[in-house]
Design a protein around this nucleic acid. Structure first.
Lengths: 190, 190
DNA sequence: TCTAGAATTGACCAGTGGTAAATTAATAAG
DNA sequence: CTTATTAATTTACCACTGGTCAATTCTAGA
Protein backbone atom coordinates (compact mmCIF):
# COMPACT_ATOMS: atom_id res chain seq x y z
CA UNK A 1 0.00 0.00 0.00
CA UNK A 2 2.75 2.40 0.95
CA UNK A 3 5.46 3.60 -1.38
CA UNK A 4 8.34 4.89 0.60
CA UNK A 5 10.59 7.67 -0.58
CA UNK A 6 13.53 6.58 -2.71
CA UNK A 7 16.00 7.49 -0.05
CA UNK A 8 18.49 10.08 -1.33
CA UNK A 9 17.82 12.18 1.72
CA UNK A 10 15.93 11.07 4.71
CA UNK A 11 13.58 13.46 6.36
CA UNK A 12 15.08 15.16 9.39
CA UNK A 13 13.91 17.52 12.09
CA UNK A 14 16.07 20.23 10.58
CA UNK A 15 14.53 19.88 7.14
CA UNK A 16 11.05 20.05 8.59
CA UNK A 17 11.88 23.04 10.72
CA UNK A 18 13.33 24.88 7.75
CA UNK A 19 10.20 24.51 5.67
CA UNK A 20 7.88 25.07 8.60
CA UNK A 21 9.75 28.25 9.43
CA UNK A 22 8.93 29.85 6.11
CA UNK A 23 5.30 28.84 6.25
CA UNK A 24 4.74 29.82 9.86
CA UNK A 25 6.36 33.20 9.33
CA UNK A 26 4.34 33.75 6.20
CA UNK A 27 0.92 32.55 7.29
CA UNK A 28 1.03 32.31 11.08
CA UNK A 29 0.41 29.35 13.31
CA UNK A 30 -3.27 28.76 12.74
CA UNK A 31 -3.11 28.99 8.98
CA UNK A 32 -0.20 26.64 8.53
CA UNK A 33 -1.24 23.01 8.40
CA UNK A 34 0.90 19.97 8.89
CA UNK A 35 -0.32 18.69 5.54
CA UNK A 36 0.92 21.77 3.76
CA UNK A 37 4.32 21.54 5.38
CA UNK A 38 4.51 17.91 4.33
CA UNK A 39 3.44 18.74 0.79
CA UNK A 40 6.18 21.32 0.39
CA UNK A 41 8.66 18.80 1.70
CA UNK A 42 7.37 16.16 -0.69
CA UNK A 43 6.36 13.81 2.09
CA UNK A 44 3.10 12.70 3.57
CA UNK A 45 1.91 14.44 6.71
CA UNK A 46 2.26 11.27 8.72
CA UNK A 47 6.02 11.42 8.29
CA UNK A 48 6.18 14.67 10.21
CA UNK A 49 4.43 13.05 13.13
CA UNK A 50 7.22 10.55 13.26
CA UNK A 51 9.69 13.34 13.96
CA UNK A 52 7.50 15.63 16.04
CA UNK A 53 4.85 14.71 18.52
CA UNK A 54 2.47 17.34 17.26
CA UNK A 55 2.15 20.72 15.65
CA UNK A 56 2.85 22.65 18.84
CA UNK A 57 6.08 20.78 19.48
CA UNK A 58 7.24 21.41 15.94
CA UNK A 59 6.53 25.08 16.28
CA UNK A 60 8.27 25.29 19.60
CA UNK A 61 11.38 23.55 18.34
CA UNK A 62 11.51 26.05 15.52
CA UNK A 63 10.92 29.15 17.53
CA UNK A 64 13.39 28.21 20.19
CA UNK A 65 16.22 28.72 17.76
CA UNK A 66 15.15 32.24 16.99
CA UNK A 67 14.82 33.11 20.62
CA UNK A 68 18.38 32.11 21.14
CA UNK A 69 19.20 34.95 18.79
CA UNK A 70 17.81 37.66 20.96
CA UNK A 71 19.83 36.37 23.86
CA UNK A 72 22.96 36.32 21.75
CA UNK A 73 22.26 39.85 20.65
CA UNK A 74 21.98 41.04 24.22
CA UNK A 75 25.26 39.39 25.16
CA UNK A 76 26.96 40.98 22.22
CA UNK A 77 25.54 44.35 23.11
CA UNK A 78 26.95 44.18 26.60
CA UNK A 79 30.43 43.75 25.23
CA UNK A 80 30.33 46.92 23.18
CA UNK A 81 32.46 49.77 24.36
CA UNK A 82 29.77 52.39 24.70
CA UNK A 83 28.23 54.36 27.51
CA UNK A 84 25.90 52.75 29.91
CA UNK A 85 22.95 54.88 28.94
CA UNK A 86 23.47 54.10 25.31
CA UNK A 87 23.58 50.43 26.08
CA UNK A 88 20.27 50.70 27.84
CA UNK A 89 18.73 52.43 24.89
CA UNK A 90 20.12 49.86 22.51
CA UNK A 91 18.69 47.13 24.67
CA UNK A 92 15.22 48.59 24.44
CA UNK A 93 15.57 49.15 20.73
CA UNK A 94 16.88 45.65 20.26
CA UNK A 95 13.89 44.11 21.94
CA UNK A 96 11.49 46.02 19.73
CA UNK A 97 13.49 45.22 16.63
CA UNK A 98 13.39 41.54 17.42
CA UNK A 99 9.65 41.58 17.94
CA UNK A 100 8.95 43.37 14.70
CA UNK A 101 11.34 41.21 12.74
CA UNK A 102 9.74 37.98 13.92
CA UNK A 103 6.15 39.01 14.55
CA UNK A 104 4.76 35.51 14.25
CA UNK A 105 7.24 34.10 16.70
CA UNK A 106 6.69 36.92 19.07
CA UNK A 107 2.97 36.44 18.85
CA UNK A 108 3.09 32.78 19.66
CA UNK A 109 5.64 33.04 22.41
CA UNK A 110 4.39 36.08 24.20
CA UNK A 111 0.77 36.44 23.46
CA UNK A 112 -0.97 33.28 22.48
CA UNK A 113 -3.63 31.84 24.67
CA UNK A 114 -3.82 28.50 22.99
CA UNK A 115 -3.46 25.86 25.67
CA UNK A 116 -1.53 23.20 23.80
CA UNK A 117 0.87 25.84 22.58
CA UNK A 118 1.36 27.35 25.99
CA UNK A 119 2.30 23.97 27.32
CA UNK A 120 5.37 24.00 25.11
CA UNK A 121 5.97 27.71 24.87
CA UNK A 122 6.99 28.77 28.32
CA UNK A 123 10.70 28.25 28.68
CA UNK A 124 11.99 30.38 25.85
CA UNK A 125 10.14 33.59 26.70
CA UNK A 126 10.87 33.19 30.38
CA UNK A 127 14.55 32.84 29.66
CA UNK A 128 14.52 35.79 27.32
CA UNK A 129 12.80 37.90 29.92
CA UNK A 130 15.21 36.82 32.61
CA UNK A 131 18.12 37.76 30.43
CA UNK A 132 16.53 41.09 29.65
CA UNK A 133 15.76 41.83 33.28
CA UNK A 134 19.18 41.00 34.69
CA UNK A 135 20.79 43.05 31.97
CA UNK A 136 18.70 46.05 32.87
CA UNK A 137 19.47 45.52 36.54
CA UNK A 138 23.17 45.47 35.80
CA UNK A 139 23.03 48.56 33.62
CA UNK A 140 21.23 50.49 36.32
CA UNK A 141 23.51 49.36 39.12
CA UNK A 142 20.66 47.41 40.69
CA UNK A 143 19.06 50.67 41.73
CA UNK A 144 15.81 49.84 40.00
CA UNK A 145 13.16 47.81 41.76
CA UNK A 146 12.37 44.46 40.23
CA UNK A 147 8.76 45.44 39.85
CA UNK A 148 9.70 48.44 37.82
CA UNK A 149 11.83 46.39 35.50
CA UNK A 150 8.86 44.18 34.91
CA UNK A 151 6.70 47.17 34.14
CA UNK A 152 9.22 48.43 31.66
CA UNK A 153 9.24 45.09 29.99
CA UNK A 154 5.47 45.25 29.71
CA UNK A 155 5.72 48.70 28.18
CA UNK A 156 7.97 47.39 25.46
CA UNK A 157 5.75 44.39 25.11
CA UNK A 158 2.76 46.63 24.49
CA UNK A 159 4.49 48.31 21.63
CA UNK A 160 5.52 45.10 19.96
CA UNK A 161 2.27 43.30 20.67
CA UNK A 162 0.37 46.00 18.89
CA UNK A 163 2.56 46.49 15.85
CA UNK A 164 3.10 42.77 15.48
CA UNK A 165 -0.24 42.52 13.80
CA UNK A 166 0.13 45.42 11.45
CA UNK A 167 2.93 44.27 9.23
CA UNK A 168 4.98 47.42 9.68
CA UNK A 169 8.70 46.96 9.88
CA UNK A 170 11.05 48.39 12.45
CA UNK A 171 12.17 51.04 10.00
CA UNK A 172 8.62 52.05 9.15
CA UNK A 173 8.03 52.87 12.78
CA UNK A 174 11.16 54.85 13.54
CA UNK A 175 9.29 57.83 14.88
CA UNK A 176 6.92 55.87 17.12
CA UNK A 177 9.78 53.74 18.39
CA UNK A 178 11.76 56.86 19.25
CA UNK A 179 8.97 58.35 21.30
CA UNK A 180 8.30 55.13 23.11
CA UNK A 181 11.89 54.40 23.96
CA UNK A 182 12.51 57.97 25.07
CA UNK A 183 9.62 57.84 27.50
CA UNK A 184 10.97 54.64 28.98
CA UNK A 185 14.47 56.04 29.17
CA UNK A 186 13.10 58.89 31.23
CA UNK A 187 11.78 56.41 33.72
CA UNK A 188 15.15 54.73 33.92
CA UNK A 189 16.85 58.01 34.70
CA UNK A 190 14.94 58.67 37.91
CA UNK B 1 -36.11 15.50 5.51
CA UNK B 2 -36.05 18.47 7.78
CA UNK B 3 -37.95 18.77 11.03
CA UNK B 4 -38.22 22.38 11.87
CA UNK B 5 -38.41 23.67 15.42
CA UNK B 6 -41.89 23.77 16.90
CA UNK B 7 -41.96 27.52 16.98
CA UNK B 8 -42.51 28.75 20.53
CA UNK B 9 -39.57 31.04 20.13
CA UNK B 10 -37.87 31.79 16.91
CA UNK B 11 -34.12 32.05 16.91
CA UNK B 12 -32.88 35.62 17.05
CA UNK B 13 -29.55 37.38 16.85
CA UNK B 14 -29.87 38.25 20.52
CA UNK B 15 -30.39 34.66 21.58
CA UNK B 16 -27.40 33.54 19.59
CA UNK B 17 -25.21 36.30 20.93
CA UNK B 18 -26.17 35.44 24.50
CA UNK B 19 -25.13 31.83 24.19
CA UNK B 20 -22.09 32.63 22.08
CA UNK B 21 -20.99 35.13 24.70
CA UNK B 22 -20.74 32.52 27.41
CA UNK B 23 -18.89 30.09 25.21
CA UNK B 24 -16.47 32.59 23.72
CA UNK B 25 -15.62 33.99 27.11
CA UNK B 26 -15.14 30.51 28.50
CA UNK B 27 -13.19 28.88 25.70
CA UNK B 28 -11.95 31.67 23.48
CA UNK B 29 -12.56 32.24 19.81
CA UNK B 30 -10.70 29.33 18.29
CA UNK B 31 -12.13 26.73 20.59
CA UNK B 32 -15.72 27.73 20.22
CA UNK B 33 -17.39 26.15 17.22
CA UNK B 34 -20.56 27.22 15.50
CA UNK B 35 -21.87 23.72 15.97
CA UNK B 36 -21.43 23.88 19.70
CA UNK B 37 -23.21 27.20 19.92
CA UNK B 38 -26.04 25.73 17.89
CA UNK B 39 -26.18 22.65 20.05
CA UNK B 40 -26.53 24.67 23.23
CA UNK B 41 -29.28 26.66 21.57
CA UNK B 42 -31.01 23.49 20.46
CA UNK B 43 -30.75 24.36 16.79
CA UNK B 44 -28.71 23.12 13.90
CA UNK B 45 -25.58 25.02 13.00
CA UNK B 46 -27.07 26.02 9.67
CA UNK B 47 -29.63 28.16 11.45
CA UNK B 48 -26.92 30.40 12.84
CA UNK B 49 -25.64 31.06 9.36
CA UNK B 50 -29.06 32.38 8.51
CA UNK B 51 -28.66 35.11 11.12
CA UNK B 52 -24.93 35.74 10.82
CA UNK B 53 -22.78 35.67 7.75
CA UNK B 54 -20.02 33.79 9.50
CA UNK B 55 -18.28 33.15 12.79
CA UNK B 56 -16.29 36.36 12.73
CA UNK B 57 -19.37 38.49 12.21
CA UNK B 58 -21.13 36.80 15.07
CA UNK B 59 -18.21 37.41 17.34
CA UNK B 60 -17.92 40.99 16.32
CA UNK B 61 -21.60 41.68 16.92
CA UNK B 62 -21.19 40.25 20.37
CA UNK B 63 -18.03 42.01 21.36
CA UNK B 64 -19.22 45.37 20.12
CA UNK B 65 -21.72 45.51 22.94
CA UNK B 66 -19.05 45.06 25.56
CA UNK B 67 -16.87 47.70 24.08
CA UNK B 68 -19.67 50.17 24.45
CA UNK B 69 -19.26 49.60 28.16
CA UNK B 70 -15.73 50.88 28.40
CA UNK B 71 -16.76 54.04 26.62
CA UNK B 72 -19.67 54.48 28.98
CA UNK B 73 -17.35 54.00 31.92
CA UNK B 74 -15.02 56.70 30.69
CA UNK B 75 -17.88 59.14 30.22
CA UNK B 76 -19.11 58.43 33.69
CA UNK B 77 -15.66 58.91 35.12
CA UNK B 78 -15.35 62.34 33.60
CA UNK B 79 -18.47 63.48 35.38
CA UNK B 80 -17.13 62.64 38.80
CA UNK B 81 -16.25 65.52 41.06
CA UNK B 82 -12.65 64.62 41.78
CA UNK B 83 -9.30 66.12 41.04
CA UNK B 84 -7.85 66.00 37.61
CA UNK B 85 -4.91 63.87 38.58
CA UNK B 86 -7.17 61.39 40.25
CA UNK B 87 -9.30 61.21 37.16
CA UNK B 88 -6.26 60.42 35.10
CA UNK B 89 -5.28 57.65 37.43
CA UNK B 90 -8.78 56.25 37.44
CA UNK B 91 -8.76 56.30 33.67
CA UNK B 92 -5.62 54.22 33.52
CA UNK B 93 -6.93 51.85 36.15
CA UNK B 94 -10.26 51.60 34.37
CA UNK B 95 -8.63 50.55 31.15
CA UNK B 96 -6.67 47.82 32.85
CA UNK B 97 -9.70 46.67 34.80
CA UNK B 98 -11.72 46.36 31.64
CA UNK B 99 -9.04 44.33 29.91
CA UNK B 100 -8.67 41.92 32.77
CA UNK B 101 -12.39 41.55 33.25
CA UNK B 102 -13.01 40.69 29.61
CA UNK B 103 -9.74 39.05 28.59
CA UNK B 104 -11.19 37.18 25.66
CA UNK B 105 -12.81 40.24 24.21
CA UNK B 106 -9.70 42.24 24.73
CA UNK B 107 -7.67 39.57 23.06
CA UNK B 108 -9.77 39.44 19.98
CA UNK B 109 -10.21 43.15 19.60
CA UNK B 110 -6.72 44.32 20.35
CA UNK B 111 -4.42 41.51 19.62
CA UNK B 112 -5.68 38.96 17.21
CA UNK B 113 -3.96 38.50 13.93
CA UNK B 114 -6.61 36.40 12.30
CA UNK B 115 -7.41 38.00 8.99
CA UNK B 116 -11.11 37.32 8.77
CA UNK B 117 -11.52 38.59 12.30
CA UNK B 118 -9.54 41.72 11.72
CA UNK B 119 -11.78 42.59 8.83
CA UNK B 120 -14.66 42.93 11.25
CA UNK B 121 -12.82 43.98 14.35
CA UNK B 122 -11.45 47.38 13.59
CA UNK B 123 -14.09 49.95 14.43
CA UNK B 124 -14.70 49.15 18.05
CA UNK B 125 -11.08 49.26 19.26
CA UNK B 126 -10.36 52.36 17.20
CA UNK B 127 -13.31 54.13 18.75
CA UNK B 128 -12.32 53.05 22.21
CA UNK B 129 -8.81 54.30 21.67
CA UNK B 130 -10.03 57.59 20.30
CA UNK B 131 -12.21 58.08 23.32
CA UNK B 132 -9.32 57.21 25.59
CA UNK B 133 -6.90 59.53 23.81
CA UNK B 134 -9.14 62.57 23.74
CA UNK B 135 -9.94 62.09 27.39
CA UNK B 136 -6.28 62.05 28.27
CA UNK B 137 -5.70 65.11 26.12
CA UNK B 138 -8.45 66.95 27.93
CA UNK B 139 -7.22 65.95 31.35
CA UNK B 140 -3.72 67.18 30.55
CA UNK B 141 -4.87 70.46 29.04
CA UNK B 142 -3.62 69.32 25.64
CA UNK B 143 -0.07 69.75 26.83
CA UNK B 144 0.85 66.21 25.92
CA UNK B 145 1.95 65.33 22.42
CA UNK B 146 -0.30 63.00 20.53
CA UNK B 147 2.57 60.59 20.06
CA UNK B 148 3.10 60.37 23.77
CA UNK B 149 -0.54 59.61 24.40
CA UNK B 150 -0.24 56.77 21.95
CA UNK B 151 2.82 55.46 23.73
CA UNK B 152 1.00 55.57 27.02
CA UNK B 153 -1.81 53.61 25.53
CA UNK B 154 0.66 51.01 24.35
CA UNK B 155 2.13 50.82 27.83
CA UNK B 156 -1.26 49.99 29.27
CA UNK B 157 -1.87 47.65 26.42
CA UNK B 158 1.29 45.76 27.24
CA UNK B 159 0.14 45.15 30.76
CA UNK B 160 -3.27 43.91 29.76
CA UNK B 161 -2.04 41.93 26.76
CA UNK B 162 0.28 39.99 29.01
CA UNK B 163 -2.01 39.29 31.92
CA UNK B 164 -4.93 38.56 29.64
CA UNK B 165 -3.56 35.12 29.10
CA UNK B 166 -2.82 34.29 32.67
CA UNK B 167 -6.28 34.21 34.17
CA UNK B 168 -5.38 36.56 37.02
CA UNK B 169 -8.06 39.02 38.02
CA UNK B 170 -7.66 42.72 38.52
CA UNK B 171 -7.63 42.24 42.26
CA UNK B 172 -4.99 39.54 42.10
CA UNK B 173 -2.66 41.98 40.42
CA UNK B 174 -3.12 45.00 42.66
CA UNK B 175 0.55 45.42 43.35
CA UNK B 176 1.70 45.09 39.75
CA UNK B 177 -1.06 47.40 38.59
CA UNK B 178 -0.01 50.00 41.14
CA UNK B 179 3.58 50.00 39.99
CA UNK B 180 2.65 50.19 36.35
CA UNK B 181 0.14 52.98 36.75
CA UNK B 182 2.46 54.97 38.97
CA UNK B 183 5.23 54.86 36.40
CA UNK B 184 2.85 56.09 33.75
CA UNK B 185 1.53 58.82 36.03
CA UNK B 186 5.09 60.05 36.42
CA UNK B 187 5.32 60.47 32.69
CA UNK B 188 2.10 62.44 32.66
CA UNK B 189 3.40 64.83 35.27
CA UNK B 190 6.34 66.08 33.22
C1' DT C 1 -57.83 27.93 2.13
C1' DC C 2 -54.08 28.87 -0.63
C1' DT C 3 -49.66 30.74 -1.34
C1' DA C 4 -45.38 33.42 -0.89
C1' DG C 5 -41.59 33.85 1.75
C1' DA C 6 -39.08 33.40 6.06
C1' DA C 7 -36.78 30.12 8.99
C1' DT C 8 -34.69 25.71 9.69
C1' DT C 9 -32.63 21.36 8.70
C1' DG C 10 -29.17 18.16 7.35
C1' DA C 11 -26.44 16.30 3.75
C1' DC C 12 -22.40 17.69 1.81
C1' DC C 13 -17.65 19.85 0.87
C1' DA C 14 -12.87 20.65 1.62
C1' DG C 15 -10.13 21.11 5.09
C1' DT C 16 -7.92 20.29 9.96
C1' DG C 17 -4.81 17.70 13.76
C1' DG C 18 -3.89 13.33 15.08
C1' DT C 19 -3.47 7.90 15.21
C1' DA C 20 -2.14 3.42 13.84
C1' DA C 21 -1.65 -0.52 10.97
C1' DA C 22 0.51 -1.81 6.87
C1' DT C 23 4.31 -1.34 4.02
C1' DT C 24 8.86 -0.24 2.49
C1' DA C 25 13.77 0.36 2.80
C1' DA C 26 18.06 0.12 5.11
C1' DT C 27 20.87 -2.48 8.16
C1' DA C 28 22.97 -6.03 10.94
C1' DA C 29 23.70 -11.01 11.79
C1' DG C 30 24.34 -15.48 10.26
C1' DC D 1 23.93 -13.86 -0.16
C1' DT D 2 19.87 -14.56 2.94
C1' DT D 3 17.33 -13.38 6.52
C1' DA D 4 15.36 -11.17 10.45
C1' DT D 5 15.10 -6.71 12.66
C1' DT D 6 14.01 -2.23 12.93
C1' DA D 7 13.62 2.56 11.42
C1' DA D 8 11.09 5.49 8.27
C1' DT D 9 7.10 6.34 5.48
C1' DT D 10 2.53 5.98 3.59
C1' DT D 11 -2.24 5.83 3.78
C1' DA D 12 -6.69 4.94 5.40
C1' DC D 13 -9.19 6.50 9.02
C1' DC D 14 -11.25 9.34 13.05
C1' DA D 15 -13.72 13.20 14.90
C1' DC D 16 -13.79 17.63 14.20
C1' DT D 17 -14.04 22.46 11.83
C1' DG D 18 -16.33 26.59 8.99
C1' DG D 19 -19.24 27.10 5.39
C1' DT D 20 -22.90 26.22 1.48
C1' DC D 21 -27.26 24.99 -0.32
C1' DA D 22 -31.32 22.43 -1.80
C1' DA D 23 -35.07 20.61 0.47
C1' DT D 24 -38.26 21.11 3.82
C1' DT D 25 -41.39 23.11 7.29
C1' DC D 26 -43.73 26.65 9.26
C1' DT D 27 -45.94 31.35 9.53
C1' DA D 28 -48.43 35.17 7.94
C1' DG D 29 -51.22 37.60 4.69
C1' DA D 30 -54.68 37.71 0.98
Amino acid sequence: MAARKAVEKELSREMIIDVAHDLFVEDGYQHTSMRKIAKVLGYSHGAIYYHFKNKAELFYAMVEQDFAMINAEIDQLMKLDIEREQKLEELLLGFIRFGLTYPNHYEIMFLTKDKDLQYYATNAPDQSYHNFATTIATLTDHQLEVKKIWSIFLMLHGFVAHYCRTGYSFDDLQSAVQTHVQLIMNILKD
